[in-house]
Design a protein around this nucleic acid. Structure first.
Lengths: 223, 223
DNA sequence: GTATGATTTATACAGTTGTTTTAATCATGC
DNA sequence: GCATGATTAAAACAACTGTATAAATCATAC
């Protein structure tokens, strides 16, 4: 029988987590029913109650998965660019990030889930910030600080980093708008994404250099 | 009686629209109940059915309001910057837009509603794009085209425009994250917003000038 | 094989929601 | 005043949802 095949029969608990992650990301917490999750996961309606106590318990575990996945994807990006000289490091970071965000092949359920948490924050957002974002923020800031030739407690570092991050993430979140304004057959092919990345890189590098020419802005606060 | 005072007793229909706009923006279509809307608006539960046929009918009219409001706010921005020289025009545009987005005094219900439509697009998004965004896109593109010293069918215009727009809108959408990473007492005071705007302006102007030094990229498509 | 605990199943329940219906109330013109 | 149409009010309905319960089934150790 099928249940004897460990490749097909992942534990119910894990199947529920995977399905829930996908559905919560795609439709949002309130627009997903326990019945839908269980049906897609091939589990009984009571499975959520049994394995996670209630719907919110399931959601919390999904968010923990998301926080870990976000952290890991950031570490991957950092390490892929680490060995390069500063300018190339920035260029590579932007290119890889944009591919992860825009490539239709990638399923970025965690990005969608975070986008939802940003519109309707729940206590789960704290977890995402603490475990998914903060741990890598110093290394990401360092990438910009080196180009600015300054230290991490210079406010300009974070302003420039946000300007870069903003451009990349905006292309993803504005997809529904751009799809309605672009020519009919438009798609985010790897080539299109590359050329977009090149623009963001050139634009941002010039921005950084302009900011580098201005005096430092010491922050009186340590994160 | 109160119903005789035209200042207090706006027509039920209009009161419903105003309350619904606020609630839909704040909580999303599915998380607002007709009962809640009617209660806040001081109307009977059946009022939505009577005036708008059903919940979706009410939402559609709210979206029409939003599209008009978005268009108007863009026209206001454009006209406020129009008379200035190109660089100052960009600087003013960025500063005013950021104030509208970040100032806690401003209630930007239409921005929130659009942000929700971007995550969960409904047919209503078409209306927002057609009536709220497209009509002013040429004038906004022109602002950048002049700085690039090129024409509107140069791809670089829209790449640069998006880079600017991305920075401004990102500061708003990422509020829940930055609030959790900023120092405890942090607030978007007018002074903070001004300094942010100055950064975005300097960063973007340098970006535009760097892009202007590269060859034009003709688009084969007319919007 | 059989006892025991883990897991799954089927079903029921109570609360909420959008919608509809029917009656009551109001405003207006005569 | 009164008839008429517009608006508001109160109540009910059916569908859906999260949760809980108790029985059935399974896996495992002995």
């Amino acid at each position: 029988m099928a249940t004897s095949n460990p490749l097909v029969d992942i534990e119910t608990r894990q199947r529920l987590l995977n399905v829930a992650a996908e559905l919560f990301a795609e439709q949002g917490f309130n627009n997903v029913t326990i019945r839908e999750i269980c049906q897609v996961a091939g589990a009984n309606l009571a499975a959520v109650n049994y394995h996670f106590r209630d719907k919110l318990g399931l959601y919390k575990e999904v968010v923990e998965m998301a926080a870990k996945a976000v952290h890991q994807s950031k570490v991957d990006l950092i390490e892929a660019a680490e060995a390069l000289p500063p300018e190339e490091r920035l260029r590579t970071y932007i290119r890889l990030l944009l591919h992860r965000l825009l490539d239709p092949e990638e399923d970025s359920w965690m990005d969608k889930l975070i986008a939802r948490e940003m519109i309707d924050p729940t206590p789960a957002l704290d977890l995402i910030v603490e475990k998914g974002i903060k741990p890598t923020s110093m290394r990401l800031g360092g990438m910009v600080a080196e180009l600015l030739n300054t230290s991490l407690n210079d406010e300009r570092v974070w302003q420039c980093f946000l300007s870069i991050q903003a451009q990349c993430l905006f292309y993803k979140s504005s997809k529904p708008i751009t799809a309605r304004m672009a020519p009919p057959g438009f798609k985010y092919t790897p080539e299109v994404i590359d050329s977009l990345a090149e623009h963001v890189y050139q634009f941002s590098l010039a921005g950084i250099r302009a900011v580098a020419a201005k005096p430092a802005q010491r922050m009186e606060w340590q994160p």
